[in-house]
Nucleic acid binder design. Structure first.
Lengths: 225, 225
DNA sequence: TTAAATTTTTAGACTTGTCTAAAAATATTT
DNA sequence: AAATATTTTTAGACAAGTCTAAAAATTTAA
């Protein structure tokens, strides 16, 4: 088989590692049991149990009541799962005609497939993509991320322009809403007007004028031109 | 989610259904607990337990001590898993440069991914293949198989010719052996000589003469010209 | 800085899928 | 047809991962 040296993790363990990874990039501090429970839609008591196992396996540091942090090994492992998730998302969109709001659920399953060759060759097939269909960076084999200096659309000033490069909320509701409005990654946007009373925006996209609520503008990443 | 109407099965359940499916195509009778246990490398007692669950779910017929048979629903479900397995094998070979001896292990995992769109689009991407990389037929959406009138190389007579269309044993050892000898699907073979004392063959392939043992000839399918 | 509220952990239970060992049924042999 | 061998099932146990309810620790508030 193919599992002598490399540590293997169950799907449940991988999901915990991924959740902690995402929470760590947001908060930098030790991640609380409750935060993990919320993000995995499970109970805090289940998290405590699992976190002990992960600690035994040296992928997290854990002191009772103090939250957890990923070790070097845990970080690498988690980044690799995210890498797989995002590469599969690109595959689904590029090769199988999925739309960006349909990929998450399936990638959530595909990310657990164990085969180094599979993911390397997928990377080749897709042309070594750096970003997934939502604009999120794909970690490389060592877990490093390409950074892009993106800002929220809501921070653009009047008459400034930028290119759509990502979303903060990638729920299918939001993504489908963007589709309906004709807003997709790569599209150029210019802020025509900023309304003070509700923080809504008037923007130009594809030569058309569009009104955008603050909630939308707060979930759309732009790279300034 | 995506699981309101269609019945969902666990990976373990799917593996049992697949095993029973394969055993049924060989034997036509009720499949014994022991046969399933052997094929899944598990214990007969575990099989008894699982078979009861499958019976409750209406995918097999089971009477104590009498073995099991797939119901219509079970047959369709199993064929669908085999369909997914074989489509993924084609994908791995055609798109990701896997060799035919490397695909099984990974397809064994991929076959359990749940998404109708995924498998339909994969079918499109691959051009609706009818056979997997070992020459085994890919069931269509209703579970129907394309039949090919293939025979074992060992049944070819002296001076008869045929095209390699499949293998009976698809262990990586056998497949790697065939690779080494230059025998792949689609290659034309002519029987030059049949030796009586050990049933070995002398064949011509690619204009070269090759000696083939009976064991090999008994595991290689040929379509007569 | 005590008291109250919240978070986290523990303890015990449940499910799925597996196992071993023993009992029951079936099949084979003489 | 009785005795033996084999197969299958049952019974009880175990590991993984989850849950609820209660206890312990920490944080917040007064």
């Amino acid at each position: 088989m193919s599992c002598q040296n490399k540590k293997m993790f169950t799907q449940a363990e991988e999901n915990y590692l991924k959740a902690i990874y995402h929470l760590e990039t947001d908060s930098k501090k030790g991640i609380s049991t409750n935060a993990i429970a919320k993000s995995l839609e499970t109970k805090a008591s289940s998290v405590t149990d699992m976190v002990k196992k992960l600690s035994d396996k040296k992928v997290v540091l854990y002191k009772k009541y103090q939250g957890v942090t990923l070790t070097e090994l845990g970080l690498k492992t988690a980044a690799n799962i995210v890498r797989k998730h995002r590469l599969w998302e690109v595959f689904l969109v590029q090769k199988l005609n999925f739309s960006w709001d349909e990929v998450h659920e399936v990638a959530e399953q595909l990310e657990h497939i164990k085969s180094a060759k599979l993911i390397n060759q997928l990377d080749v097939l897709l042309g070594f993509p750096k970003y997934d269909p939502h604009g999120d960076p794909i970690p490389d084999k060592d877990g490093n991320l390409s950074k892009i200096d993106k800002i929220l659309l809501s921070t653009l000033l009047k008459n400034e322009s930028g290119v759509c490069v990502g979303v903060d909320d990638s729920s299918s509701e939001f993504l489908q809403f963007l589709d309906k409005k004709g807003i997709t990654l790569g599209k150029q946007i210019t802020v025509l007007e900023k309304e003070d009373f509700d923080d809504s925006l008037s923007i130009e996209i594809d030569g058309k004028k569009l009104s955008i609520s603050n909630k939308i503008a707060n979930n759309l990443y732009i790279k300034k031109l």
